[in-house]
Each structure stands twice: as structure tokens, then as C-alpha cells.
Design a protein around this nucleic acid. Structure first.
Lengths: 125, 125
DNA sequence: CTGTTGTATAACGAATAGATTATATACATC
DNA sequence: GATGTATATAATCTATTCGTTATACAACAG
């Protein structure tokens, strides 16, 4: 079951607020990775990367498993749903208050999906 | 046009990671408010609340206008779209990698929308 | 003009975040 | 068992966050 305390949402948004961590999520979206791999990819010490991964774990965005001496990180599903749910719920509230905004939103949703190549400083193009 | 730098997304998620600020957003979703009103509502000093509002402004989530000595705060549209767009984009990435997750997502999207009464510590029920 | 109200600004403090180095441990390999 | 690799843990450092108090200013009420 999805745990949904305020603190958990804090953790999800807090985790997403760092560009390195968003970059890690993008990377894990393409392939699983060890701490060492991620540390190299993001030019950071192992210890530093381990902390980021820990934060992503706490937020329910990443799951890890240690086999032998290698800790493998992969995307771990539900955290992002929490954030998405909160935002969606409030977008609806806002839309009710600003009816005119709906048009803007509809208009933007197309543009943004193509415009955005953003967010981590580690784009692959 | 929606500015969409990594830093801007940092600001949006960072702003959303604090329960007081999410509470302020919820409050402003129901009615506009002055700094004083918000400070009372959230049992905080004026200075403290002013800072939170400033952070929400920087993230593009709130707009303020000072008339006379009163600064009125209202929801200011585009910031939330940025966060929503980022999450949605990556949910799609993830879904591609974990096809089985799609079912879970679909299943949860119903449950969560009713389950969640969350996020700010200032629920009104 | 005087007093009160709403903000702004500055300075401070405790706690956390983001990163590091140094050291230890645990597994793999030869 | 010796060596190298992958991680864990502890200590440290700087910067930022979240909140405060103290002070100043600006505008409305009388």
C-alpha cells in the first residue's frame, strides 16, 4: 500500500529538487546501475552518490539490492505516483479557481512535452 | 513563455517539498490572502511567512501584488505545470521500462485520488 | 500629527543538505 | 592468504533552510 504521510511527500519533492538526483532517475530509467557506475557518470565520490541514492530510496523512487559487494540500483515505482497525484489534485483545484487557466494548460501541455529537455544537467544530446 | 531551466525545476520541487508551503498553496487555492492572514493561519511570524511566500514566488507558484501596505498573494499559474510535466515525462520513461507497472499505475490512480487527504499538516477535516 | 497596522530588512541561530576525505569492512580473484 | 574492488561508516566543512527577534518604514485611522 502506498504510504502517504506529509513527510513522505516532503521526501518525494525534496528528492526531486536536486538536479543530480533527477539525473540519476533518468539514468536508471534507461538502465540499472551500481553506485560506482553512477558516481563515475555524475563525477562524484562514491560516498556522495551513495547519499543521493539513499535519499531516493527513502522517497520510494529507487530500490536497491546488494548482491555480493555490488549494490544495484533500479527505479522503484510508487514514489513518483505520490508526487504526480499531489500535483494533479491541486491542478484541479486551481483550474476550478481560474477557469481561464485551463486553456493555457491545454495549450502548454503540447508545447512543453516537446520543449522540455531539461532538469538534470546531464542531457544526452 | 515558460522558462524551463534545471534551476527552475529545482525551485518548483524545492518549494513543494515543505508542508507549510503546500498548505499555503492549498489555502490560496480557496482564496487569496495577505501575508498577515497566512501567518496567522499557519501560526508563524510575518517574517517567516514572507519568506515562504517569496520561495513560492521564485518558483512561479504564487504571484503577489502590493496595494497600499497590504501584499496580496494569489496562485500564479505556470510553476505547477513544470513539475507536472517533468513527472509525467518520466512516468512515461519508467512505464516503457516496466511494462507491468502500467497496471499498478492505473489501479492506483483511482485509489489514490480518494485516499489522499494529505500533504500539509493543515487538513481541514 | 499620533498611533496602529502591514511589511520590509537585517542579523542571528539551530538544523539540515551536499559534498568531501579518511578509514574500515566484505567480497572476489588469483 | 594477498590484492584489488565495491561499499559502509565516521568525521568534517561549507552553504542553505527554517525559523526567530529587533528594527525601520509606510500607510491608513483618528
Amino acid at each position: 500500500m502506498v504510504q502517504c504521510t506529509p513527510g513522505h511527500i516532503d521526501a518525494v519533492f525534496g528528492a526531486l529538487s536536486d538536479p543530480t538526483r533527477r539525473g540519476v532517475l533518468e539514468h536508471l530509467g534507461r538502465m540499472d546501475a551500481s553506485i560506482t557506475t553512477l558516481a563515475e557518470r555524475f563525477e562524484m565520490t562514491l560516498t556522495g552518490m551513495r547519499k543521493h541514492v539513499g535519499i531516493l530510496e527513502d522517497a520510494g523512487l529507487v530500490a536497491t539490492e546488494k548482491v555480493g559487494r555490488v549494490r544495484t540500483c533500479r527505479l522503484g515505482g510508487r514514489g513518483l505516483e505520490l508526487g504526480a497525484a499531489w500535483i494533479e489534485q491541486h491542478r484541479q483545484l486551481w483550474s476550478a479557481r481560474f477557469e481561464a487557466l485551463d486553456d493555457v494548460v491545454a495549450e502548454l501541455s503540447l508545447k512543453e512535452r516537446t520543449l522540455i529537455r531539461l532538469g538534470s544537467g546531464t542531457e544526452r544530446e
